[in-house]
Write a protein that binds this DNA or RNA. Structure first.
Lengths: 187, 187
DNA sequence: ACCATACTAGGACAAGCATCCTAATATGGT
DNA sequence: ACCATATTAGGATGCTTGTCCTAGTATGGT
């Protein structure tokens, strides 16, 4: 099946972009991981940017799904926000090694002045909007809810950066703990 | 004078690494900026890594100087910590465009598995130790002081990431404000 | 004035890269 | 069975990169 190979390429590219960075990942790297030849690539993706495009679309779709899942599985805004915070623990091993996939990609694409930067940023926007909705559900007005959403985003980004810089998983635990207390306070 | 050229190279390389990333900055880029020929480089630096090494050493020296300056100009731990927080405002224009130079370099070198990653991380360590000292001066024991230092580091990193992702300087203002309130609370 | 050394310029080189091309093979509808 | 199309492999190409080499030019101490 063709789409199987395509999916596999996207999957491997996604991982490699996360672990090694976009620019530092070559076609040969992805081809090796997938187990196909370099030339074969151009049947599935016409350029490196188009793979990046597919990876970003995939991340956007996954994120969107995750957010609606949380919306359905949890029935309080507080619990939903805690789902977000808990990503830090769920992915602690990878975060310790590679940081946050969203933050590191946008940072890299920013330095490259890459045309797909704005698309990569949409993942952030997705989280921001969703978090804003939750804080509104807690009774905050539009402006305050958005401010709080940005704070939550920033705090999780900071935790990821510091945890990976110091190779310290325990910091993620402490931050999630403090984060929850803060949320109870805000609530 | 020879060291003038050398300093200029380091200076330009420092800026370019910050703005475009390390890997994405070529010898030609730096040579162009400095106004010398490519070949001339190898008289001053024997490899690209050695320029990075010099840039990191420069940043370390600058950071160290800044920290001792704060130590001398301010006479309360609280005021000193606020100096740190205020970097976000001092550098807001650049942060909005390129994020934090320390965070983005360590993130990139991490993805490259670059041998100088540990050196780049020393800038973080410098800040961490200094902040820990300040919190100890506020009366916290070793463990708590270190935890607080990590929190401050993380929070500033998060602010930088989010400000640049959303191209939003105003978030830096809000964060510094909230940061100061938090510090008063902790104090 | 002389000479060793510092400095500079610019071309040469090999390696790695994204991309393109051609040709072989598989597949699925008729 | 047949053929158009999808899929694959792997070599060719041209560009950029870091690095090296050679040969000029400046400089500073004696």
């Amino acid at each position: 099946m063709a789409s199987r190979t395509r999916d596999k390429i996207i999957d491997m590219a996604d991982n490699l972009f996360y672990q090694q960075g976009f620019e530092n990942t070559s076609f040969a790297d992805i081809a090796n991981k997938v187990g196909i030849s370099r030339g074969n690539f151009y049947h599935h993706f016409k350029s490196k940017d188009s793979i990046l495009d597919a990876v970003i679309k995939r991340r956007l779709a996954n994120t969107e799904k995750m957010l609606t899942d949380w919306h359905e599985s949890e029935n309080s805004a507080e619990a939903r926000i805690k789902c977000f915070i808990n990503i830090l623990l769920m992915n602690r091993a990878k975060i310790k090694l590679y940081g946050c996939p969203v933050g590191s990609l946008t940072t890299e694409l920013g330095k490259l002045s890459h045309p797909l930067l704005s698309d990569a940023n949409k993942v952030f926007t997705l989280f921001k909007r969703w978090l804003t909705t939750q804080f509104k559900a807690l009774g905050y007005d539009d402006v305050n809810a958005e401010d709080l959403a940005m704070q939550v985003l920033a705090r999780s980004q900071g935790a990821a950066i510091v945890a990976s810089a110091f190779h310290d998983e325990s910091f993620l635990y402490k931050e999630v703990e403090a984060f929850s207390l803060w949320l109870d306070d805000v609530n």
